[in-house]
Design a protein around this nucleic acid. Structure first.
Ligand SMILES: [Mn+2]
Ligand SMILES: [Mn+2]
Ligand SMILES: [Mn+2]
Ligand SMILES: [Mn+2]
Lengths: 225, 225
DNA sequence: TTATAAATTTAAGTAAGCTTAAAATAATTA
DNA sequence: TAATTATTTTAAGCTTACTTAAATTTATAA
């Protein structure tokens, strides 16, 4: 399938995952940098190919085939990210930018060689789950965002969710990385601000950050650090 | 530029290198798997973009910009081949097949990171020269094909030129590889057959092979092996 | 509830990159 | 040289992936 088609089903899948974000043509169009008209047009064409369910004025939905295609693109994307991060030492935002292209011209053969070489990883360097060869993906991993973390607890960062370089640069500069432990000092619920401590440094994070930093409970370390 | 354009200027460049092969639309068309009409069409369009010089019924020629583009694609191709060969251990024909795609969606940034990681190689695993970042390529390296090698001399294989898997499989099965030494036993000039010895094994090669195996003189080993 | 704004869809059109069929030209063979 | 064959070019048409502009529908606000 074409690059345009692969990108199209991928953004539908991703917006569909982040429940709440609607998958009407306008949303897809903005994400892809095309006009609304083009997105509607594409949706109709992909409906004929049975990749997308299209009903006028309704949110777009993927068919089973569309979902499979999206997961296949995402698998290639995240395997490339892992490879570029580990072997070429690219940064968290560089790997995303390059994988956004490489994902489209990678054969099944190369994809599986990459996977084997990397030891069949199930998360990429951002902590994003890598679908397996059959499109199965590890959801429901007991992770949640810093926004809903409890004050006084220690957590392990397991995922940095995003694609813009500013976010990743900020994380890098402030020791926010997958695998790092942090303590939530206080939740300023009204203003959606969160005070955390990482490596003895205090950081006051707003919601645009805390909703993109996913953490996991660290049971036996609650009082340490 | 588009994938179609990159492939188009690349084959013109390559046919132009192998002096003798003409670069009329029909030749390009066959190489790309498109019709003659499509090749003529494309040639005209690329002439408008000043990548190709086009005169009815004449061989196609690259402009300076066209040549630069071709060399840039070839650089990306051969760096990928080197990378896939060294890190993922793909075979000589697998790396070609994959690089044929990857060459088109690789940013300048990634290209140079690849190059640095590999130690700025100047030949790929087939022995093909890798153009530098400015499009300079190491031609005239004192290499020649087995067809024109002298009987009784020892040579080092420096290049296996081709793209079909059958050729590379044959080479692999018979210890014909870049860096390997061989002795030319006899040249059957009339029938264009060459008898060589590699690792104590005698091999009788026809012209379709000897024209694709490039060797270099090995001055001090003439009598050994 | 109605007016207004926003989003979506339709319509018409474009460029890239192909196709087949026919016409023109060049190359080969008799 | 003339006739035949092969190649190249032109012409017309197709699909994909977009665009802008206008019409339609939905969502929001008065
Ligand atoms: Mn992409
Ligand atoms: Mn990722
Ligand atoms: Mn290619
Ligand atoms: Mn090569």
């Amino acid at each position: 399938m074409s690059i345009a088609t692969e990108n199209f089903v991928k953004v539908i899948y991703q917006f569909d995952q982040n429940q709440g974000l609607d998958t009407k043509p306008g949303t897809i169009a903005k994400a892809l940098g095309i006009t609304n008209a083009a997105a509607t047009d594409m949706a109709k064409k992909l409906a004929l190919k049975e990749l997308v369910k299209f009903q006028k004025y309704q949110p777009l939905q993927l068919t089973e085939n569309g979902r499979k295609m999206a997961l296949s693109v995402i698998r290639r994307h995240r395997l490339w990210e892992t490879f570029l991060y580990r072997t070429l030492n690219l940064s968290l935002h560089e790997i995303h930018r390059e994988a956004e292209l490489l994902e489209h011209l990678t054969s099944d053969f190369l994809t599986e060689r990459l996977s084997v070489f990397l030891g069949s990883p199930d998360v990429d360097p951002h902590g994003d789950p890598i679908p397996d060869i059959n499109g199965r993906i590890n959801s429901d991993t007991g992770q949640f965002t810093l926004l809903s973390a409890k004050a006084g607890s220690v957590y392990k960062i397991v995922r940095l969710s995003g694609s813009d370089s500013e976010f990743f640069e900020f994380c890098e500069e402030n020791d926010i990385a997958v695998g790092v432990h942090l303590k939530v000092e206080k939740q300023y619920t009204g203003n959606e601000m969160t005070l955390v401590v990482i490596n003895d440094q205090k950081l006051l994070l707003n919601a645009s950050l805390t909703t993109r930093i996913f953490v996991e409970q660290v049971p036996n370390l609650k009082t340490e650090l």
